[in-house]
Amino acid sequence: MRSYGQLCSIARALDVVGDRWTLLIVRELLILGPSRFGEIQRGLPGIATNLLTQRLRDLEANGVVIREPAPSATGAPIYRLTERGMALDGVLRELLKWGAPTVPQAPPEAIFQMHWLSQPARFLLKDHRPSEPAAIIRFGTLDDGFDLTAAKGTVAVRPCASDTKPNVGVIGPGPVLVALLQGAIPLELALTNGVRIDGDASALTRVLPPAPDSINVPGQYN
């Protein structure tokens, strides 16, 4: 990793996390929690195995990631964020907010994985009916998704758990789901553009932001 060689906290931070793929590795570990190499790689389509290995080594050397022995003799080592690594959550939140307006202009061939939506969901969705019993909304599947729990005025996200019984399941195209979570389109319009729900729809509407009175979203949502 090359250094900028500047006595500046921004430059020093970029010395550690400024290389290509590095912050996306942090994103995966923030979403998934402690993970094996292969689990991290699945969330980074396009990264070469040797490059991911090097980036993890660099993060470990800089105290951002720790590599723990496999829980069993035949298992793979586990990577997890250190306290310093977890502190990057706020950095990624600001990048998420800064980058959100550019999502509708992403190229049509852009790859989408449902679990990536868990970070914006954590910040964009609210529990609008806190007096009601807790509700669980599953976005995606056990293989690629997340569970969002609305309870007592708060929302929490975590990777899908096989022993969890969601109140409603949600799947659909990435751009449409992003627009739905941002409040750019109402649920009714999302349903006509490929979003599918299975279960109690009111659990989903409980957390969605209010859609605008007039819809002016370009392209496929007109």
Rank of each mutant, 00 (worst) to 15 (best):
G172M: 11
G174T: 13
A121T: 12
A190T: 14
P45R: 03
K165L: 13
L96T: 12
S214V: 15
P34I: 06
T192W: 06
A70R: 08
G174N: 12
L59E: 12
E28L: 05
L44C: 06
V65H: 00
N50G: 04
V195Y: 01
A121G: 07
L96E: 10
L59D: 09
V207E: 07
K97M: 12
D198S: 06
A135E: 01
A211K: 00
G5V: 14
Q41G: 13
G199K: 00
V64A: 01
P209G: 02
D19I: 06
N50D: 14
W21P: 11
V26D: 05
Q105W: 14
T205M: 03
A150T: 00
A76K: 08
L148K: 00
R12G: 12
L81H: 04
M114D: 08
L187A: 00
D15N: 02
D198Q: 09
T141W: 07
D89W: 08
V155A: 04
L208M: 11
L177E: 08
H128W: 09
G169M: 08
L142W: 06
V17Q: 01
Q113A: 13
S35R: 04
G172N: 06
L181F: 15
M1Y: 09
D144F: 03
I215F: 03
I40V: 13
I136Y: 00
P101C: 02
E188M: 04
D147L: 05
A100E: 15
V65I: 15
L148Y: 01
I78A: 04
V157K: 02
R12F: 13
K152Y: 06
E68F: 08
E188T: 13
E94M: 05
S202T: 10
A203R: 03
P166M: 09
G63W: 14
A106Y: 15
R84W: 15
D143S: 06
L124I: 11
I25P: 07
H128Y: 10
S214H: 11
V217F: 09
V157P: 00
R80V: 08
R80A: 09
A184Q: 14
R27C: 07
P77R: 01
A110S: 10
S162H: 09
